[in-house]
Every structure is written in C-alpha cells, then in structure tokens.
Simulated assay, not measured.
Amino acid sequence: MTIRTVTPVADAPWLIVGAGALGQLFSASLARHYPVILLGRQSAPPAIRLRTSEGMDHQVTLRRERLSDWAAERSRNEPPALVVLATKSHDTQAALDALMPRLTPTTPLLLLQNGFQVQPRISEHWAGPVLCASTTEAAYRPLLDPESELYSTRPDVVHAAAGETWIGDLDDRHPTLAAAVAECLGKAGMTATPCLDIRQRLWQKLAVNAVINPLTASHRIRNGDLAGPEFRPRIVALVAEIGRIMQAEGIQPPATGWQALIEGVIEATAANHSSMLQDVLAGRPTERGAILGPLIDAGLRHRLDTPEIIALYQATPH
C-alpha cells in the first residue's frame, strides 16, 4: 500500500494498540488532529488526561475500546489507515494476531517496540508495509493508591520529556509512507523524522537500553543514579561487550563512541524511571528478553564472549 497524499489519514482512523505510557502519549497527541481509536486490555472512559512536558494538564477526547471487543466486532467495516502497535514486545504478536481478521493484508503497521526482536519478525511475515520507530519520547503512567485523595485528579499519562522519533522500514522500501507518518506526528506536535537507517537507529537505542533498563530495574534506582562511581566498572564492561557486538553486526558507533552515548543519556534522563523499572514497580513483566536477548543471540551468532550481558540478563527481573 502506498500513501497518495502527504498524510496517511483522511476519514479512516489511526488504530493505536496498547494503552501504556507511549500508546496514550501518541494517542493524546494525534487525536487533536486525526481520528484515533485507542485499544487496550481494559474498558476506559473516552478521554486521556495528559500532563505535558511543560506541566500543563489537558483532557483529550478520543475513542477507546477494548482490543478484544474491537477485534470481535466483524460486522463493522472500518479498516484503519494505519495500525500503531504500542504494546510491550512480548505482547505484540498476540495483539496483531487478534486484529488480523479485521485488517486487510496490506494495512500499514508502525512498530514502537523496544529491542530488536519483533521488528524483523513482523517485517518478514506481514504482507503490507511495516514501519519501525525509534523514539526518545519519555512518558510514564503515575502510580497512586486508589485510596489517595489525589487519585481522581491524577493524569493518565505524564509526558516526562520531549524527544525525537525516527521512522523507517528495515528494507528501505517505504520512504514515502515513512515521510507521511512523520509529517503527521509533526503536525501533532511531536518531533519526527523519516530515515533510511532505521536498523542503525534501533540498534543504537538497544545499546542504550541494554545498559540503563536492566541496571535501574535490578537496583530500583533512577537513571541518574547510574552515574555513581560504584556502577562505572560494570557499565564500562557492558559497553565493551556491546561495542564488539555492534561492530560484528555492522552497526556504526556514534561519533563520540558508545560509552559517551550511554553516559550522555544517563545524564540527560537523570530524573527518569526507565521503562523496565516502571514495569517492575507496577508488577508487570519486563522486556528483559527483547532488550538483552538480541545481544546474547548476536554474541552467539558471531562467536563472541558476552559474560557481562549474560550475567545482567540472569539478574534482571522478568
């Protein structure tokens, strides 16, 4: 499927699957400009209470449904213009399988997952265009006791820090679609760029996540705490193994090197709770396999020793 105009939506809705922090952030941003349907596991009121990165609260009205209800309603003919899969990596294939009976085989997909597991798998098997996104947008869902007097006024999602989103497909076959989706995100107030090196972007983000997410989740600390001297030897050892894997995979290091990249992200996101730590605190399964699994697999494939990565995998909550 190709996009005939500069935007991938006219009357057809964007279908956003996954009501986690990123799913709600993208939904709330896009719904002010485009028709959006947000699918989640649970029923929810037709609105999202968004706290912006500037600290302003907005209530955004949009259509929300349970994924199971939308997938089961076969009588309606409402093909989406684009399906944004914003689920956790381990839930993505099951969500897509549930949607399949109501999607045309050429429906474009946009994958927002961490790691590098579901992206190549879905790109290979889905008949339509599959775009992948690498984003530095930071968002979280506040955790409050339902008995708290603040519970009724809490935002559904907090946009902790504005970032940038890169969009492309693994075979560089759909640059027009990537540009159109990026333009839509830009009109919705998000910084988005189409790119022809999304594989490079995904692996670079994986390198960062593989250090920050498991360590913060294991120690239950904020990102900035990793700058302490007690963590430096382990981070240096992890980065050395990651760097060798990236070289074997043909992934170019940033100009300043892998160590400087990861240290820079730790500093820039010092106050943030990583997504994996958020999962641990909320009692949800983590993306340990999606983030560390591709590195372990690549190490085996290239016959590289990765004792630090394996030890981190074993110590990380799952």
Rank of each mutant, 00 (worst) to 15 (best):
S123N: 01
E124T: 06
S123Q: 00
T107F: 00
S123Y: 00
P129Y: 06
V118Q: 15
T107N: 04
A127N: 14
V118D: 02
L131P: 04
L96N: 01
R102H: 03
L110S: 09
P105I: 03
D97C: 05
L131Q: 07
T106W: 09
P129G: 11
F116N: 02
A98V: 01
N114M: 10
I122Q: 13
D97V: 10
P120M: 08
V130A: 04
H125F: 01
L110W: 14
T106A: 03
F116C: 05
P120I: 11
L131K: 12
T104F: 05
L112M: 15
W126I: 01
L112S: 06
V130W: 01
P105C: 04
R121E: 13
M100T: 07
Q119N: 15
T104A: 14
W126D: 02
T104W: 07
L111H: 07
F116V: 04
Q119D: 12
L96H: 01
R121T: 15
L131Y: 12
P108T: 07
S123C: 03
W126F: 01
T104E: 14
P105M: 02
W126T: 01
V130S: 03
T107Y: 02
I122F: 10
R102Y: 05
P108R: 08
D97W: 00
M100H: 03
P108Q: 12
R102P: 06
S123H: 00
G128D: 13
G115E: 02
L109S: 13
G115H: 00
H125E: 06
W126R: 07
P108I: 08
A127W: 03
P108D: 11
L110D: 10
L99W: 05
T106C: 04
P105W: 04
Q117F: 06
P120K: 05
G115D: 00
L109P: 07
T104D: 08
T104Y: 09
P108S: 11
L110I: 14
F116S: 02
G128F: 08
L131A: 08
C132E: 02
A127M: 10
P129D: 05
P105S: 01
L96M: 03
T104L: 13
A127V: 09
M100N: 00
D97P: 01
Q113W: 06
L112F: 13
Q113K: 05
I122V: 15
E124W: 05
I122D: 08
G128L: 10
W126E: 01
S123D: 00
R102L: 05
D97H: 05
W126G: 00
L96T: 00
T104K: 13
L131T: 15
M100P: 00
N114Y: 13
C132T: 10
C132I: 11
V130G: 02
L96V: 03
G128N: 15
P108W: 05
F116Y: 12
G128P: 07
E124H: 11
Q113C: 14
L103R: 08
N114K: 05
L111Y: 11
